[in-house]
């Protein structure tokens, strides 16, 4: 059985492997890893059902791997190899799969998620959209929040507040707070540290149930981005001192074994995908 720890470690090793492949020149384009933010999608995974629609963003590998046990399909997508989720067309930040979509334009997904929520309204399913703190700069976010509250949409907005957008600290980009902005629309808001998975689920289970019956919710997680924005572009100092669940959990019994398993699994996936032929695409 796959445990939460296994999932966390799979995501961690997957992201590390990507940066490694980039460093070796084996990946083309760009990527945004979720190193440090793995707990958020892993904690949410059992709260979301197969009929729910997840909208992910540029930093979406963890969102995908927490929903689908498919590291090979994702890596093949990023490397443009056979077996890629979207034929290598979309790449790291444009993925479509049943109940799951990501796109690379900030803020764009929120009105779309509101539309999906309107479609789902009354069915018991919800639309869940992940956005970062920086994306609160986009006007579309507010237009969508207004509609969500006005139309009682089953919309769950998950904010991964890592204190930085690319290189811009939140303090240089946001006046006021996310909580106060939600309050202005009468949208329920809850702020949580991305630390204790059981506690996150305990707090969110009733709130997410309420979303399903038309009470939109913004959950704001405090997280640390431990990696660069994309690759080799970190302008911060002191990143090594930031809290990291990986370090903190490493004394748990069974951690070392689980860590080795996840590492081996990702190594095998990398070997497998690298050996595959290039993906094919018949242009529509």
């Amino acid at each position: 059985m796959t445990t939460d720890l296994d999932r966390l470690l799979l995501i961690r090793h997957f992201e590390r492997a990507l940066l490694d492949l980039f460093a070796k020149g084996e990946l083309n384009g760009t990527t945004h890893t979720c190193l440090g933010q793995e707990i958020v999608p892993v904690a949410l995974a059992p709260l979301l059902g197969p009929d729910d629609h997840v909208f992910s963003n540029h930093r979406g590998h963890g969102h995908y791997l927490a929903r689908f046990d498919d590291p090979a399909g994702l890596l093949a997508e990023i490397m443009g190899r056979e077996g890629a989720v979207c034929g290598g067309v979309g790449g790291s930040q444009h993925i479509l799969r049943e109940g799951y979509l990501s796109t690379g334009v900030q803020g764009e997904s929120l009105p779309v998620a509101a539309g999906a929520a309107l479609h789902l309204r009354g069915s018991g399913a919800l639309a869940c959209a992940y956005i970062g703190d920086g994306t609160w700069g986009e006007g579309a976010v507010y237009e969508a929040l207004n509609l969500a509250a006005l139309w009682a949409l089953p919309l769950l907005v998950v904010v991964e507040h890592n204190g930085i957008a690319q290189t811009t600290p939140t303090a240089l980009a946001m006046a006021g707070t996310i909580g106060a902005r939600c309050a202005a629309f009468g949208v329920r808001h809850v702020a949580l540290p991305a630390e204790d998975i059981a506690e996150i689920r305990a707090v969110l289970t009733p709130l997410v149930s309420a979303v399903r019956t038309g009470s939109p919710l913004v959950v704001e997680f405090a997280v640390n981005r431990l990696g660069p924005h994309s690759k080799g572009d970190d302008t911060r100092s002191g990143v090594a001192e930031l809290r990291d669940w990986y370090r903190e959990m490493s004394d748990l019994t069974g951690f070392a074994e689980a860590d080795a398993r996840a590492g081996d699994l990702v190594d095998a996936v990398v070997r497998d995908v690298k050996a595959r032929p290039l993906s094919t695409w018949s242009r529509p």
Binding site: N28, G29, M79, G80, A84, G87, G88, V89, G90, G91, S92, H94, L278, S279, W281, R283
Partner: peptide
Amino acid sequence: SADSIIPTAGHLERAV
């Protein structure tokens, strides 16, 4: 360029 979106993978992008 072709009447197409621009794919991510290098070999697909070059074809467009």
